[in-house]
Nucleic acid binder design. Sequence first.
DNA 1: AAATAACCTTAACCTACATTAAGATTAAGA
DNA 2: TCTTAATCTTAATGTAGGTTAAGGTTATTT
Lengths: 210, 210
Amino acid sequence: MRAALDKKSEVASEEALKSLFDSFKEILPLKQHEKDEIRFIARQRTIRKRQFILQEDDICKHYTFVVAGCFRMFSVDKKGGEHNIQFAAENDWISDIGSFFSEKPSRLFIEAIEPAKILQIEKKDLLKLYAESLKFNRNFRVIIENKYVELQNRVLQNISSTAEERYIFFIEQYPHLSSRLPSTQIASYLGVTPEFLSKVRKTISTKRRS
Amino acid sequence: MRAALDKKSEVASEEALKSLFDSFKEILPLKQHEKDEIRFIARQRTIRKRQFILQEDDICKHYTFVVAGCFRMFSVDKKGGEHNIQFAAENDWISDIGSFFSEKPSRLFIEAIEPAKILQIEKKDLLKLYAESLKFNRNFRVIIENKYVELQNRVLQNISSTAEERYIFFIEQYPHLSSRLPSTQIASYLGVTPEFLSKVRKTISTKRRS
DNA sequence: AAATAACCTTAACCTACATTAAGATTAAGA
DNA sequence: TCTTAATCTTAATGTAGGTTAAGGTTATTT
């Protein structure tokens, strides 16, 4: 048993670890000793709805794997408007990678939209994995490659499509998210006001009917 | 000397290799035997202005390192409009990562905006590096992490800033690009028409004067 | 040097989306 | 159960940016 665990984090449960290990299966599955390394460094936390796991000016100190629940990452502009950059639900990773590696204060917030359960890995532990293991370098490289492609598609959408097209694309790409998120959060992700999204949804549903 | 080199690619020159090795220096510098591995697999090509190194429906088969010159990556919408996703000048990497790994046809084009010199690594050679070497996994992981952060900033800009703010941010972030690119290319990157960018530039310069 | 193509700007009009404000619906607390 | 807060919708008016079209400037090519 480990010596000092901070009060809010716990030793990771086998159930939570299983979903993490499963998510690696599609890349390079872990061997027993590699699973044990993760078991040793991953901390589990239970997060309430509306709780933040990162706030502006914090330095992002963890890679966070979402076991259950849903988060949004957003920034706040000078006028106080919030802009969602990404969502992360079960089996997804979320963290401010820029702040994590540069160790500069983040300009972003990460907030639970639903009650959640997460696993977190600290930077020093992750760096140790990277220094010693080809497989962890490789698995996290693949994870970020996939996220890079997702983001690139998003940029493409943003500069070349209307709000209606972007909304349709979103609900096709993330059906599990679109049904459970409040539409005000989706609007913020698409870069439109909730009012306008409402209008868009109406025109779509009248199109369907005719 | 290697057996079969296709006609358009050459053995990499020492000069070109040096800039590639230098770009790794900031992450984990290469040892002699690692440099030799790159020397063995990298192919050098000279690209003319307006020449494509990737076209829609091609499968992206290379990671491309830009030694000299400048490229743009863009997509074409149903109406024929072109949308620049990224530029890549000296010491930058460019390829359609999605197509590269999935081996599905690309929806993107990569075109030289200036006469250019590049080094290319084929997928099978890169995968061999990844399978054998922790350092190459790590270096390319870091490269893509940085590109991910850049892209994320871009998404943020797109959903939260006006065209004027985006333009100012662009010329601050990429001063070496903004001076050498035709403004029509910058407009396509910002997601506005050349006409509107012209209007924006005028209002900025009249603001400066007053 | 002329000719063609690429690039840049101006201006009039038009459309997608923002803003404000009000009311309606649903969900969460006490 | 009542209350307050969060969420969703509708509609009026305003604005950023698109579209079209024209003329001007700079590069390339012949």
